[in-house]
Computed example of a mutant assay.
Amino acid sequence: MAFVSLDEDGERDFVFSRGADRELVYDSSLKTYFEHNIVHFGAATALLGGTLEEAYSRYLFDGLTKNAFISF
């Protein structure tokens, strides 16, 4: 969940409440499902580091090498 607010100058401020996404780890066995399918990435917190960012990077690579349609 992301909370967004605007300061007096109109600048955005983001605060993320992280949950289960923090626990996602890469599972190489999933890449067998990617061939010619759609792989969708949708967590706003995906690029905040940790195991989620690593898993996203690896799943993206797997999707690309399996000719998947990649969606963000």
Rank of each mutant, 00 (worst) to 15 (best):
L6M: 10
L60K: 03
F3G: 12
E53I: 00
T45C: 06
F14V: 08
E35A: 15
T65D: 08
L30D: 06
D7H: 03
L6E: 09
S17I: 13
G63W: 01
H40Y: 11
K31F: 08
L24T: 12
V39R: 05
K66G: 02
G19P: 02
L48Q: 13
F61M: 11
S71R: 08
D13V: 09
M1E: 14
F61L: 12
Y59V: 01
G49L: 05
A2F: 08
G63Q: 00
E35T: 15
I70Q: 06
Y26Q: 03
A55R: 02
A46F: 04
F34D: 06
F41C: 05
G19E: 11
E35V: 11
D7F: 04
F14C: 01
D9M: 10
R58C: 02
H40Q: 13
Y56S: 03
M1K: 15
F3W: 07
E8A: 15
L47R: 11
L6V: 02
T45H: 05
S57H: 07
A44F: 07
F61S: 10
L52Q: 00
L47A: 09
M1Y: 13
F34P: 02
S17H: 15
E53C: 04
F41G: 03
Y26G: 05
K31D: 10
F16N: 01
A20K: 10
V4Y: 03
G50I: 00
L60S: 01
T45N: 08
S17F: 15
R12N: 11
I38E: 13
D7E: 05
L64K: 12
S5A: 07
L30C: 08
Y56Q: 07
N67P: 02
K31T: 12
L60Y: 07
L60F: 06
E53G: 04
S5P: 05
A68V: 00
K66H: 14
N67V: 01
K66D: 03
G50L: 00
E35G: 07
L30T: 02
D62S: 01
E54M: 03
D21A: 07
V4M: 07
Y59P: 00
F69R: 13
F14I: 06
R58Q: 07
S57D: 07
E8S: 14
A68E: 01
S28L: 09
L47S: 12
G42C: 06
V25W: 01
